[in-house]
Amino acid sequence: MWRFDFYNTHIDFLRWSKLAMGWSIAVLLIAVGSLLFRGMNLGLDFTGGTVIEVQYPNPADPTQIRATLAKAGFGDAQAQHFGTARDVLIRIPPRAQTNAATLSNDVLHTLQGVEGGANVTLVRAEFVGPQVGQELVEQGGLAALGALLGILVYVMFRFEWRLAIGTVAATVHDVIFTVGWFSLFQIEFDLTVLAAVLAVIGYSVNDTVVVLDRIRENFRKRRKGTAIEIMNLSINETLSRTTMTSFVTLLSVIVMYFFGGTVMRGFSIAMIVGIVVGTYSSIYVASATALYLGISREDLLPRAKETADERP
């Protein structure tokens, strides 16, 4: 029943590499375009402001809540259902006034003060000052860059610079794709999503490394064949494990999406998108980039062996 094996496949992956490249570039352009023109739906962590999640004993009407808040001087407040009809999420954009820290309490008191609000309970309240948000944006960007750089150095040290650049190209591809997805569908991008993006950076390399390992092994083992042939062979040989490993991790993340609660939903979406696109990119982007950079058998042979080979 579970026979979706890819053994003994002979798919000429790299024959489609130009098409894949074109597709990747097109998708990345859309992602970058969306980032530039639509922007990100940045969460409270980055924009600053106040978010209050309250729970009513019975289904509540966000429109009415908005009206109540507007009357109490919170004209800029937004209210929407969150998860269930009884849960309401209220957002208030950052304010310049100094007592912003007490805003969440005032809002809760206002809601509890009107009719039918006596049993409103606070689920969570978050207030982030504008300076903190700005810092998180900077630090988050730095962490992502640091992770990419660290991985580049490691792969370069373990493999070869063309493969390293291929790996990083694949990873950057995955990050832009994932972030672009959040921009295109305007899903809220908060701190946990950023954490997921960094995890995607780490995980995306996993699959790539599996393919690269085999490419190196085959270049050393086989005397015949062009670079393209060996790469195709390697991708085919590892196809089963790249898809299986991604699939297993995907399973756990999908479970998290459905059962992990609303707070972890953004995190799960980022991981799902990242893992799927990461599998694609390790097949196409990483090896194709290395190929375009002109990788050959000699580049992957161990130095000592190379000199020994020259003497008959």
């Binding site: 640091g146 992770a147 660290g150 991985i151 490691y154 960094l198």
Partner: peptide, 12 residues
């Protein structure tokens, strides 16, 4: 490689 990303995340 995943550990590298995790360490960056920890520092952040």
């Amino acid at each position: 490689t995943t550990l590298i990303a995790a360490i960056m995340l920890f520092g952040f």
